Amino acid sequence: MSKKIMSLLIIVVLIASFGLAGCSKEGASTAKVLKVGTDAGFAPFEFQDEKSKEYVGFDMDLIKALGKQMGYEVQIQNMNFDGLIPGLEVNSIDAVASGMTITEARKQKVNFTKPYYQAGLTIVVKNDNNAIKNFKDLEGKKIAVQIGTTGAAEAKKIKDAQVREFNNAPEAFMELKAGGVDAVVNDKPVNEYYIAQSGSKDAKAVGEPLQAEEYGIAVAKKNTELAGKLDKALDELKKNGEYEKIYVKWFGKKPGI
C-alpha cells in the first residue's frame, strides 16, 4: 500500500471519528433530564426499598410518570427535607417531590404546581398512652417532629411543649417507641402508614386532623416554564387514569382530589 493511499485512509478515519463524536455530543445535549430532590424517609410517599435499594412510594411513582409524560428522564436525589428548597435556589435540583405542603411562606421562595394530594396533621402516641387525645393535650408534652415540616411548625405553637426535631419521620417514630417523647406530630398518611406497618402493636393515632393541607411539586421561583409543564402533565395523567392508578396502588382507594 502506497504512502499516498495510507494517508487518504487515515484522513477518512479521522473525519469519520470526528463525525461520530459530533453525533454523540449532540445526542447528549438533547437528552432531557429532570433532577428531583426528595427526603426518602416519608413513607408511603418516598422511601428506600430494603431489597432493591431504589426510591419508591407515591411521590416517586408520580414524578416518574410526570417525567415520562413530559419526555424527561427523572433522576432522584435523596436529601434532608430542610435542604430541598435551598437545593432549588442553587440549581442543584430542578424540582422537589417530597410530600411538601403548599404554604404561603414557601410560596415566597418557590413555585408550586397544582395540588396533587390533600393531607392534614395528626398525632401518634404509644398504645398505652390514654392521656393524650387531641392537640390541646400536647401542652407541656415532649413532641417528636420532622425538621422543616408543617408538623414541626405547628408543634412549636403548642404551649410549653418540648419539641424535638429529627431528620426524617422514621427517626421520630423510633424516639416515640423508645419512650423519649410522648407523641409524634406528622402528616396523616405518614402516621397511618407507620401504624399499619407496625401492625398497631406499638402506636395509635388520636384526635382529628389539625388542618387540611395540600401537597405540591416545588420548582425554583423563576422556573415558571417547568411548573407549567408539570401542571399540564398532571392534568393529562388525571385524564388518562394513570394518576388514579398510582393513587390506588399506595392508598387502596380512589383519590378525593
Rank of each mutant, 00 (worst) to 15 (best):
134 N>P: 11
143 I>E: 04
174 M>T: 10
131 A>M: 14
170 P>F: 07
124 V>T: 11
148 G>S: 02
101 T>Q: 02
103 T>N: 03
169 A>Q: 12
94 D>S: 09
158 I>D: 01
154 E>R: 09
122 T>G: 03
145 V>L: 04
98 S>V: 08
118 Q>G: 10
130 N>D: 14
141 K>A: 03
179 G>T: 14
102 I>H: 02
171 E>W: 05
152 A>F: 08
124 V>P: 00
155 A>G: 06
115 P>V: 02
160 D>R: 14
173 F>Q: 02
114 K>G: 00
131 A>G: 13
108 Q>L: 10
161 A>F: 00
174 M>V: 11
162 Q>D: 12
178 A>T: 09
123 I>V: 07
111 N>L: 09
114 K>N: 02
88 L>E: 01
151 G>S: 04
122 T>P: 05
88 L>H: 01
138 L>H: 07
163 V>K: 04
122 T>W: 04
149 T>P: 00
173 F>L: 10
138 L>N: 04
98 S>T: 12
169 A>N: 12
155 A>K: 05
129 N>C: 08
123 I>E: 00
147 I>C: 09
121 L>P: 05
141 K>G: 04
144 A>N: 06
169 A>G: 09
120 G>N: 01
121 L>I: 08
107 K>Q: 10
147 I>V: 15
100 M>P: 05
153 A>K: 14
104 E>L: 07
140 G>L: 11
148 G>E: 05
90 V>K: 15
137 D>L: 07
97 A>C: 10
166 F>N: 05
125 V>T: 06
93 I>L: 09
139 E>W: 13
113 T>L: 02
127 N>S: 11
175 E>F: 13
138 L>P: 07
101 T>E: 05
160 D>V: 11
120 G>I: 10
179 G>N: 13
110 V>Y: 04
151 G>W: 02
109 K>W: 02
105 A>Q: 14
127 N>H: 12
166 F>V: 10
145 V>I: 14
90 V>G: 00
108 Q>K: 15
95 A>W: 05
172 A>Q: 02
106 R>W: 03
102 I>R: 04
130 N>S: 15
115 P>N: 06
162 Q>C: 06
145 V>R: 07
